[in-house]
């Protein structure tokens, strides 16, 4: 999977490396700001009130 992505990135190695870092940063940002805030209330970690 990662090999496939690497081989399909355009440009010389340096450009590919920068693109790869940007891709990783994008995925991390997506997780941090969209996926985790959405998933967190659904997980059994942090309910602090009694019913």
């Amino acid at each position: 999977m990662y090999g496939w992505i690497w081989r399909h990135l355009p440009g010389p190695v340096a450009v590919r490396a920068i693109t790869a870092v940007l891709l990783v940063a994008g995925v991390v940002a997506l997780l941090m700001f969209v996926v985790f805030p959405w998933a967190e209330p659904k997980l059994p970690f942090n309910q602090v009130t009694t019913q």
Partner: peptide
């Protein structure tokens, strides 16, 4: 005061 217990879990409540 109420919070979750044990830490990192919501199995119980610490009061």
């Amino acid at each position: 005061l109420t919070t979750c217990h044990p830490r990192f879990s919501d199995r119980e409540r610490l009061v």
